[in-house]
Nucleic acid binder design. Structure first.
Lengths: 170, 170
DNA sequence: ATGTTCATGTAAGGCGTTACATGATTCA
DNA sequence: TGAATCATGTAACGCCTTACATGAACAT
């Protein structure tokens, strides 16, 4: 259901757009919040049009279809935002690897794992830092996303220090 | 694939266990890292047994089946931990709501949304604080999980302060 | 002419959620 | 006897990923 909401939110924020545009926006502005590729977005827009949440406008150059949010779509969006209790479901592969770390007897191996996690967080942080302020629309989510990644990075640094201390007790 | 890994990790850490046990462990120790209910776990264990990663032992009382990790299972687990580049895929409903906040013109409405997010993070933090040290097996993941939740909570507090300032400019 | 970007889709298969369904054991 | 807990599963449906497939327009 949240994919719909994300699409409605983008349409509401940036105005009419094609599936292609929305896929780009996803990558550049919602990336740290929700993920979806064009193969998920195109069919979903068709369903949303069938449900009256968006309207497909006349095709333009290169088969381009422009979608616009409807009043009904805006209503659904606002209702979700105002009423929906956000689920705390989490599936984090870095955290799963962190969970499994004690299985590695060799501290050097554990260090390698954490170094890889650290590199991933770092790359992600750089990616977020390059995001355009973008009319500052996504500012709240961006500050949350950045903080979360920085937290992951800090955890990695601390854990590395800890593991290195254990490796060389003296 | 990660569900398998999580199950192999638990079996490796706590020894032979039933699907029921594993579902409980999931809830009490992997909760902030990965989520899965018994309806996902039971069929997965059957598949894993077919793939030779675990062995189902004789049935006990009340139809209980005990699973043990095999050498092949341990190999897969260690390989994943050592080689797998963790995916950064994230789908966070709180963050999606944060993203959409600027759509609300009324600051009071925005405040309500953030207050609900804050309450959810707070509840989650209390839940984590009640977790048993549990032989401290999940210690690294727990510290990461706690830090992540605290970050979300801090974001909510800051955002509330910011929104309240905007509401009453004087 | 060739490569890149724009633009759209389908299909198969796996992962995840919710609802449904059953029955034994233990404790009050 | 009745309620709670232990213990297992199936089915339907929806969400997500990966791979496949097509073609127009534009820049070099």
């Amino acid at each position: 259901m949240s994919l719909r909401i994300a699409l409605l939110g983008l349409l509401s924020a940036v105005g009419p757009a094609s599936g292609y545009d929305l896929a780009k926006k996803f990558e550049h502005s919602l990336n740290h919040v929700w993920q979806a590729g064009h193969t998920q977005i195109y069919p979903e827009l068709v369903k949303m049009a069938a449900d009256g949440l968006v309207e497909a406008e006349a095709e333009g150059a290169r088969g381009r279809k422009t979608y616009t949010i409807t009043a009904e779509g805006k209503r659904e969006l606002h209702e979700w935002l105002a009423e929906h209790d956000p689920s705390m479901t989490i599936r984090s592969e870095p955290a799963l690897q962190a969970f499994l770390l004690p299985l590695l007897d060799d501290p050097d191996q554990a260090i390698k794992v954490v170094e890889r996690i650290r590199a991933r967080y770092l790359a992600r942080l750089e990616q977020l830092d390059c995001l355009p302020a973008e009319g500052s629309f996504g500012r709240y989510a961006l500050s949350l996303g950045r903080a979360q990644v920085r937290t992951g990075l800090a955890w990695a640094e601390e854990t590395l220090a800890d593991l290195r201390k254990r490796r060389t007790p003296q």
